[in-house]
């Protein structure tokens, strides 16, 4: 009986931290996150309209070229923000030892896998009718494939280690090394061979202004979506961490 009494007392003593930190009913939400979500949906609908209806049909490639807008947007997110955030948060974690950076890095890596997969699958679908082959060992394709493997390896490493500072340290080290590696991979494969169309290399390349607008809107829309999903995912991880902590306090004290 006495034991039960102490247990109940610990329950009662436990600060209502969960309730307070969670910010009331309805989950871990706040207005700006909802606004970001709504904004990204609207932006994507607008980008879809521009890409599928408004933009002119490409003269040589035909309608399949309309895949290009979201293909490039996904590639940009995979190579740019996703991996950049992983690397930046890895460095920040090693510096500050704050697990929140680790959570941001892991959320960004998850999104990176998703966007890299989209790039890798839409690329061949577009390439088949145009180049006559699903896959070519072109620098950007190959680099994206290597990038995919690095992202997946990062997540595999995380899933193999128990949550905590050790996992954060190891994955941060791998994230930094991987990030430094990607430009070298790109350079090496570029010397090896290239046939990929250069799109925005010099002054917009051969892209019509209308198409360029549709492309930039698609990139913007996907970037908003990335930001929204990242915030949601990081907040989930924050909540899960707090839950673990409170449970730990309750049951192990």
């Amino acid at each position: 009986m006495a034991e039960e009494q102490t247990l109940k007392r610990t329950f009662a003593e436990a600060p209502p931290a969960v309730i307070e930190q969670r910010g009331g009913r309805g989950g871990d939400r706040s207005l700006w996150v909802d606004a970001l979500g709504a904004g990204s949906i609207l932006a994507i609908l607008f980008a879809l309209y521009l890409a599928l209806i408004w933009a002119p049909t490409e003269a040589v490639m035909g309608d399949i070229q309309r895949l290009f807008y979201f293909h490039v947007a996904a590639a940009w997110l995979a190579l740019g923000p996703s991996f950049g955030v992983v690397a930046a948060c890895s460095v920040l974690y090693l510096w500050k030892k704050d697990l929140r950076y680790d959570r941001i890095a892991s959320a960004s890596a998850e999104l990176g896998v998703m966007f890299t997969t989209i790039t890798l699958v839409t690329g061949p679908i577009w390439a088949r009718p145009i180049w006559g082959a699903y896959w070519t060992w072109d620098p950007r394709l190959t680099t994206t494939l290597v990038l995919w493997f690095i992202f997946v390896a990062y997540l595999m490493l995380r899933s193999a280690v128990d949550a905590g500072h050790k996992r954060a340290r190891l994955s941060a080290v791998f994230g930094i090394v991987g990030w430094i590696d990607v430009p070298i991979v790109f350079m090496s494969i570029r010397w090896w061979r290239t046939i990929h169309p250069t799109v925005i290399a010099s002054e917009g390349g051969g892209l019509a202004p209308d198409m360029r607008l549709a492309l930039f809107v698609a990139i913007g829309a996907f970037t908003l979506l990335y930001a929204y999903l990242l915030v949601v995912r990081v907040r989930q991880e924050d909540l899960a961490t707090r839950l673990d902590r409170v449970r730990h306090q309750l049951y192990l004290r």
Partner: peptide, 23 residues
């Protein structure tokens, strides 16, 4: 051509949709 386009777009929204669903 349009068939490939449909497959491509279908895949994009399938991936995004299933990620959002899992979230």
């Amino acid at each position: 051509n349009l068939g490939f386009l449909a497959v491509g777009y279908g895949f994009i929204w399938l991936v995004l949709g299933s990620y959002v669903f899992s979230l």
